[in-house]
């Protein structure tokens, strides 16, 4: 056994202390990130919330591990290579999931499906009871639940059997921080009244609160266009007018 000199021993102890501190910092950062994500996603389904916060925690631990390996003076290349390969494998594995997630953002705008609509995809028919980031769930009259991956809605020809789907306009309204939501809603409704001749008057505008965050509140305005071919044009014009209105409310002194 080779006896260690005091300076060497000191260096080893210091390094171990550094590693211990880095482990503690990593553990704290992972826990903090996980907790923040849980709070931010409190309205998301618990399972999704749990998975996202766990994923973030694993990521923090991997970064922490890299720093620790570096601190120990070990070769990082092999670890980076392994992590890179794992990342590529994860992306390949998640390709379908990512495709479904990106398709989700087209549903409702370019693919006119909403919760509550009666739709048919391939030979499956039912009422849309949920549109989540990965799939849309159809409930048939017999009570069977069909899970349609969102990407399938892009690839397959689908039918929306709800009578008003072709004329429905859905506009997200971002109410800026500091603007009173009931006041903003009243102004949006008054604005819609100016367009009533272009809208189906049997269906007055419906506003609901979609997200009530700390920065702003997101409302959803649903209208029916009188003519299906004017739907997009009307949505664009109304959307622009509403954005202008919100900006005006944001800058005007509050009563």
């Amino acid at each position: 056994m080779i006896p260690l000199e005091l300076p060497e021993l000191t260096a080893i102890v210091t390094q171990l202390a550094m590693v211990a501190i880095m482990l503690l910092v990593t553990a704290f950062a992972a826990r903090l990130t996980s907790s923040i994500i849980r709070r931010l996603l409190f309205k998301a389904p618990p399972l999704i919330n749990e998975q996202i916060s766990r994923g973030a925690s694993i990521f923090i631990w991997l970064v922490g591990l890299l720093f620790i390996v570096n601190q120990l003076g070990l070769n990082l290349d092999l670890l980076l290579l392994l992590m890179g390969l794992a990342g590529v494998a994860a992306i390949i594995a998640a390709r379908d999931i990512l495709s479904n997630i990106s398709s989700r953002y087209l549903i409702g705008s370019f693919i006119p499906f909403n919760v509550g609509d009666e739709v048919q995809v391939s030979s499956f028919r039912g009422k849309v009871v949920e549109i989540n980031p990965v799939a849309s769930l159809l409930l048939s009259e017999e009570g069977a639940l069909t899970v349609v991956p969102n990407s399938v809605l892009l690839k397959e020809i689908s039918l929306n059997l709800s009578p008003y789907a072709s004329r429905r306009i859905t506009i997200p309204v971002h109410v800026p921080q500091g603007v009173n939501v009931p006041d903003a809603e009243a102004e949006v409704l008054k604005l819609c009244n100016k367009y009533k001749n272009k809208l189906d008057q049997r269906f007055p505008p419906l506003v609901s609160v979609k997200n009530s965050g700390q920065a702003d509140v997101v409302l959803e305005l649903v209208l029916l266009s009188a003519q299906p071919e004017k739907r997009n044009e009307l949505a664009a014009e109304l959307g622009a007018k509403i954005s202008e209105l919100m900006e005006k409310l944001r800058t005007s002194p509050r009563k």
Partner: peptide, 14 residues
């Protein structure tokens, strides 16, 4: 339905 398209209704909603 006509009432729901009036400005007064916007305040009822408010």
């Amino acid at each position: 339905l006509e009432l729901a398209w009036t400005d007064e209704y916007a305040y009822y909603n408010q």
